[in-house]
Design a protein around this nucleic acid. Structure first.
Length: 543
RNA sequence: CGGGGCGUGGCGCAGCCUGGCUAGCGCGCUUGACUGGGGGUCAAGAGGUCGCAGGUUCAAAUCCUGUCGCCCCGACCA
């Protein structure tokens, strides 16, 4: 019996949107047309159902599940990140952490709890975060008469579970910084934060998520702006080089700024449904937080001045980004640089004698590959010698996004070769490569896959990007009115940073994502207000 | 928080409208045999008391009330 394929795909195509409960990953069962189920054995179908085209949001959830990345926890809005998902996060951490250190930052750790009064210090910040925080009000549990636990020991001042750490880190900076010699202060922390989101979505928006937050303090505005842009560049480099995800970087309009920031810059990526995902942000906070928290230093002239601060962060949302950028209807597709394992070796054998030969070849190949380098690191190879059916095993790795699968069996060894399949190509697109040559070729192969994924994503973005010249064209492009599907994409349009612009496109659920920094100025007039603007902005629906 | 949908073995579902024998089905899981480079076949097994709490009834997964949770659409956001 071939499962998780075929008929159910056809059966739902062309029908109105259905909910997850309508998808049955089990066997093909048609009450109305039992003869189909009993006679047809559809081939070349997808491992993930529904497909992207049928129901994108549901496809995303199914990929997360099929790749065994994460699952819902008993706590509302909070996910459990499973080993494979966490391994991807660790890859991201490893690379980013190195980049942070290379740009002069140090890691430190600040408390999970923030005194309520700290959040009250910066007025705009209060507006932005007051509504969506978890608050600790008690510090003790007592056993009630009915065996229930009752919170007691009310706190004098409630503690807020950090939604972000500007205030508590700022409070420490106020103590640590006294002289211009103490600047710049360049610190990053890897942590979890909590934002009580009303509508969670695995990896993209969870109540608790993992991230890094960089917080820096500088003597001058120029230096802080430079830092803000430098870290934006670090994020863009990481996204494009390591995640193979093309991004557009630029400042956000006022309405989209981080609460309390003077300027917010972001990198925006296009997902396969044409929607934008904010993949990282870097904020120039001016002296707003410094003034609110009294972060001052004595300058070279002896005069006391407020610091200029920045903050910047990326989160486990990046895992969602990589899923929605590269994955296909057979599951996850990982760019080699962030894949926990870049190559998986699949021994194939029947008899013990065959097994001995094959396993020996596998171990040798693993050692050879590990001695090769890709992206400044040894190639990460796993031998999957689990005692289970070969087909099951192969499909697991397909769904988990392993870039390269190498099957090694008696037939291969007899021919002095290995069978190689690439995740960026079809599952039956198998190539026989001489065993002696494979490891030497592997770095180039991984490079090609990495680059191929980037090129493919960039081409996709180009296809879905347009330059528009009027508000009417914007409406046409995104599809008019409520609930209209619209194919979506990025619209490059002249718009002013003005509430009227946001209001004009609000019915379309379209927002100004950022004002791209790359390319020359291209003066024009705002399609909504008629005001002159120097460059186009990117408009899109977003996550 | 407003609107809609749903909670039945690990997963996906049927049964509920028209209460009633030991609650079904597929996948998955275990064991064995035959197999073995696209997730195979056959056989034998394990595993649910139907989200939770009340109520109606001789009898409730099925009816009523309450409650908790989840999903989708909005408002909010990395």
């Amino acid at each position: 019996m071939i499962r998780r394929r075929g008929i159910e795909n056809e059966s739902t195509a062309g029908f109105p949107a259905v909910t997850s409960s309508d998808y049955n990953p089990g066997p093909i069962r048609h009450r109305a047309f039992p003869f189909i189920a009993s006679t047809e054995r559809p081939m070349a179908q997808t491992a993930i159902s529904p497909t992207r085209a049928q129901d994108y949001p549901e496809w995303y959830q199914q990929v997360v599940r099929a790749a065994d990345l994460a699952e819902q926890s008993p706590v509302r809005g909070c996910m459990v990140i499973k080993p494979h998902g966490y391994a991807i996060w660790e890859r991201m951490q490893t690379i980013l952490d190195r980049m942070f250190k290379e740009t002069g930052h140090q890691n430190a750790y600040f408390p999970l709890f923030i005194p309520l009064s700290y959040l009250e210090q910066e007025a705009k910040h209060v507006e932005g975060f007051a509504k969506e925080c978890a608050v600790v009000t008690h510090h003790r549990l007592e056993l009630g008469p009915d065996g229930k636990l009752i919170p007691t020991g009310k706190l004098e001042e409630p503690l807020v579970v950090r939604p972000t750490s500007e205030t508590i880190i700022g409070a420490m900076y106020a103590k640590w910084i006294q002289s211009w010699r103490d600047l710049p202060m360049l610190i990053n922390q890897w942590a979890n934060v909590v934002r009580w989101e009303m509508r969670p979505r695995v990896f993209l928006r969870t109540a608790e998520f993992l991230w890094q937050e960089g917080h820096t303090a500088h003597a001058t505005s120029e230096e802080a702006v430079e830092e803000t842009l430098k870290m934006l560049e670090v994020y863009a480099t990481f996204a494009e080089r390591d995640m193979a995800m093309p991004v557009i970087k630029g400042p956000k309009p006022a309405a989209e700024r981080f609460p309390g920031a003077v300027d917010t810059y972001s990198i925006e990526a296009m997902m396969q449904d044409g929607k934008a995902l904010q993949a990282g942000t870097s904020h120039f906070l001016g002296q707003n937080f410094a003034k609110a928290q009294n972060i001052k230093f004595a300058g070279t002239s002896g005069a006391e001045e407020f610091c200029w601060t920045t903050s910047w962060g990326v989160s486990t949302r990046l895992i969602g980004a990589v899923i929605m950028t590269h994955s296909d209807d057979d599951g996850l597709v990982l760019p080699p640089r962030i894949a926990p394992h870049q190559v998986v070796l699949l021994p194939i054998h029947r008899t013990d004698e065959e097994k001995a030969l094959v396993m020996e070849a596998c171990r040798k190949l693993q050692a050879d590959l590990a001695a090769c380098r890709f992206g400044d690191e040894p190639i990460r190879v796993k031998i999957d010698a689990r005692d289970m059916r070969g087909g099951d095993k192969v499909w697991q790795h397909v769904k988990q996004g392993v870039p390269v699968r190498v099957e090694i069996g008696p037939r291969d060894l007899a021919a002095g070769a290995v069978s190689v399949t690439r995740r960026d190509r079809g599952p039956k697109d198998r190539e026989s490569v001489p065993l002696a040559e494979f490891s030497a070729k592997a770095p180039a192969l991984l490079t090609e896959i990495q680059q191929g994924l980037f090129d493919r994503a960039k081409a996709f973005r180009a296809e879905r990007s347009v330059r528009l010249g009027s508000a009417a064209e914007v409406h046409d492009f995104f599809g008019a009115g409520e609930g209209a599907a619209g194919k979506g994409g990025f619209a490059h349009v002249h718009v002013a940073d003005d509430p009227a612009v946001a209001a004009a496109f609000d019915p379309l659920k379209v927002t100004v994502r950022c004002i791209p920094m790359e390319g020359a100025d291209e003066p024009g007039t705002c399609v909504v207000t008629g005001k002159p603007v120097s460059r186009r902005s990117v408009l899109a629906r977003s996550y």
